[in-house]
């Protein structure tokens, strides 16, 4: 982990970090990665990758309309007052 990687990850996460924070995160992330990397000491040849640790089946729902019609709730956090739409800074290309 280096400063550059920290800066890139921060940019992808839309985090605006100043240099001291980057320095701190560099150390912390290096520690975390080091901790997780202990796992690579274990021999995993011939072991199928596990995509879930829960031993049960994915539940499915019936295709029925059971939700919606709650525009007020959905728009409650609208940054601007508008009864129909979320309003954001223009994002056109």
């Amino acid at each position: 982990m280096d400063q550059q990687t920290v800066a890139r990850v921060a940019a992808l996460a839309r985090l605006d970090l100043h240099d001291a924070q980057k320095k701190m995160l560099e150390t912390q992330l290096t520690d975390i990665i080091g901790f997780v990397e202990q796992l690579s000491e274990i021999n995993t040849d011939n072991i199928t990758p596990l995509s879930s640790v829960v031993d049960s089946e994915l539940p499915l729902r019936k295709d029925e309309v059971t939700d919606g019609q709650k525009k007020e709730d959905v728009l409650a956090n609208n940054p601007e007052e508008n009864e129909d739409f979320y309003v954001v800074t223009k994002i056109i290309e």
């Binding site: 959905v74 601007e80 508008n82 129909d84 739409f85 979320y86 309003v87 954001v88 800074t89 223009k90 994002i91 056109i92």
Partner: peptide, 12 residues
């Protein structure tokens, strides 16, 4: 994008 000069409107 065409409902406001400086804003975009979002329909989910």
């Amino acid at each position: 994008h065409d409902m406001h000069p400086s804003k975009s409107y979002i329909d989910l």
